[in-house]
Design a protein around this nucleic acid. Structure first.
Lengths: 342, 342
DNA sequence: TGAGATAACGTTAGCGCAAACAATATCACC
DNA sequence: GGTGATATTGTTTGCGCTAACGTTATCTCA
């Protein structure tokens, strides 16, 4: 029956009570008689009343919304991270609003400002790209903020992050233990510190084994398409690798596609290891050996930290670091002995 | 230097002007001298002022945020849809806040209420799951709302949707034209109207060709895992299909994995067709024959409609329907002639 | 020079809600 | 019947912001 916005006043008039009484009934706070309660609920229902979140927020009432800022939605890793955070938030009675930055520091800053300006009760920033000054101003604002996978400028803000180095080390050692000597690597996106860690582990491990060869490293960007290209590049080398470690699962799937397109079998002719353990990794053929982050636990940790910060607990300088774990599946196997037939 | 929240009053005091002058400068609205402007900006900067979105919204000022409610983030289809909407929104100077419902009508309703209660200027609801009554109350609220892929209860709200029937028809006809006679089908999630359409097309086509066999239809849920399982089920039949049409690309990839695990080659031994054209479809081996929705255009249409609605244009009963398109790639080929060797 | 125009800035009010405080109604019990 | 306790409902205020209107300073031009 109504149009436009219905306020407490409308409900109050219809129910024949005062505004505050309506507020009390709807928030189930304070005392009121059963009869009043029924009348108010009936009126609110009839008018289709919904509380104005902006007004509530302005009044200091929490919005029960947590904001999350991520670089992009389409990457399975970030999508999973968002899902994990949403699940954890939901359990704690919060909603999660996900925003993307498209890696634009200016937009990140604006969005963060808007979110903290009454829209959200707290903020999860994944891979913050802003300057150190920006982080410092966030610190000063005392807003409940958690940084995720932040490896950049030092900050006192709480950080949740997952290791990439140890897991990558395990992946390369796994390939070495299988007998591989020429192991290719496809990097992640240039600006990603996670990508840097993965490359560093590969490099250290290969150097230590005396197997380092610059030609075996190809630049990537976490995408499948780039995996196809870089896979072909590596497999076209005069001495092609017998194993390839890719900085993401999507890239690894690209490598497998490239290998198969060249008539190679995975893992018989080429071992492939990815990173991320996206859902597809377990259900492809061959299933993918990869390195996993404990994403569920990370989501939980993010939300826990935010809620602690909101409650006034001290979270300054808190760093929650999760390990990465090698998951061996079908895509990695010993190299074919040269000359051996199938 | 500040802590807690910085308001216009703080900036005004520091700059030695009135509150409204600060507001004018920061919004670049109204008149003020260059000197004042500089002083205000300097003060605002120094204090790290960010406007309180809730207060603005309460005052009737738009938030420049569009809300989007989707069932889940992890599905590539929805992720792409969200990306498309975010891109389109961004072009028009809006941000997109993405919420997930986890298919809970109660939460959907609450979230929608909260978003329209001052958080967002408009709302994109993907596959609305609420009741007809809920949609009716949304209509009455006159809020800028667009429904996406809504096939349910009739409504006067504007709808953006993509066909699933014609594209599925084309997919099955494609397989028939290649010479397949036993064509399996794996459905989408039970509650999805898109899934229903895809099944309906398959059924009509097979019935018309006199090839309908109930045993060739397996229930699915759009996931890859279920694709693996259902793929094995179909391939274990005494008369297994020579082609399988899956209601999603992920499911199709599951089928391919199952086939490969049984030593079958795709497409030589089994043709597989998916639906969605997720990015991976083009970069896998074999690349996937699939049906595509014009997701970019859909995102644009959603945002356009919201903005029109906000501007007061008449969008009642507007229906923007996009076609689906068969994309033939490598995963579909003529069936092997029985008895023929490779 | 002064009257009207215009530029620059300020005061007030109110968006919708809920906390703090206030008022009234009801009741128990001596 | 009166006192105080308790239950129920109401009034006022202000969160931070900006639209509308008001005020003062400055300028233009006969």
């Amino acid at each position: 029956m109504s149009s436009e916005k219905v306020t407490l006043a409308h409900v109050a008039r219809l129910a024949g009570v005062s505004i505050i009484t309506v507020s009390r009934v709807l928030n189930n706070k304070g005392r009121f008689s059963e009869a009043t309660r029924a009348r108010v609920l009936q009126a609110a229902n009839q008018l289709g009343y919904v509380a104005n979140t902006a007004a509530r927020s302005l009044r200091g009432h929490p919005t029960q919304i947590l904001g999350m800022v991520i670089p992009e939605l389409v990457s399975p890793y970030f999508a999973e991270l968002a899902r994990a955070a949403a699940d954890a938030a939901s359990q704690m009675g919060y909603d999660l609003a996900v925003f993307t930055t498209s890696r634009d520091p200016e937009r990140e800053r604006e969005r963060v400002g808007a979110l903290l300006g009454g829209l959200a009760d707290g903020l999860i920033i994944v891979v913050p790209i802003g300057s150190a000054g920006f982080l410092a101003s966030l610190e000063r604002s005392r807003a409940p903020v958690v940084l995720v996978n932040h490896f950049g400028a030092p900050t006192h803000l709480p950080v949740v992050r997952a290791d990439s180095f140890e897991g990558s080390l395990a992946a390369v050692r796994h390939l070495l233990a299988l007998g591989h000597r020429r192991i290719g690597f496809i990097t992640g996106a240039a600006h990603s510190s996670q990508a840097t860690e993965r490359l560093r582990a590969y490099r250290e491990c290969m150097l230590a084994a005396g197997l380092w060869d610059e030609r075996l490293v190809r630049p990537g960007d976490f995408t499948q398409q780039r995996g196809v290209e870089a896979g072909h590049e590596l497999l076209s080398l005069e001495e092609p690798p017998t194993a390839i470690f890719a900085a993401s699962d999507l890239t690894a799937f690209g490598v497998i596609a490239a290998a198969q397109a060249r008539g190679l079998q995975v893992p018989q002719d080429l071992s492939v290891v990815g990173f991320d353990d996206i859902p597809t990794a377990a259900h492809s053929h061959p299933s993918l050996t990869t390195v996993a982050h404990p994403i569920q636990a990370m989501g939980q940790a993010m939300v826990d930290l935010i809620i602690k910060a909101k409650a006034g607990e001290q979270v300054r300088d808190v760093l929650v670091e999760f390990p990465s774990e090698l998951i061996v599946r079908e895509s990695s196997a010993p190299p074919r002995i040269p000359g051996e037939k199938v």
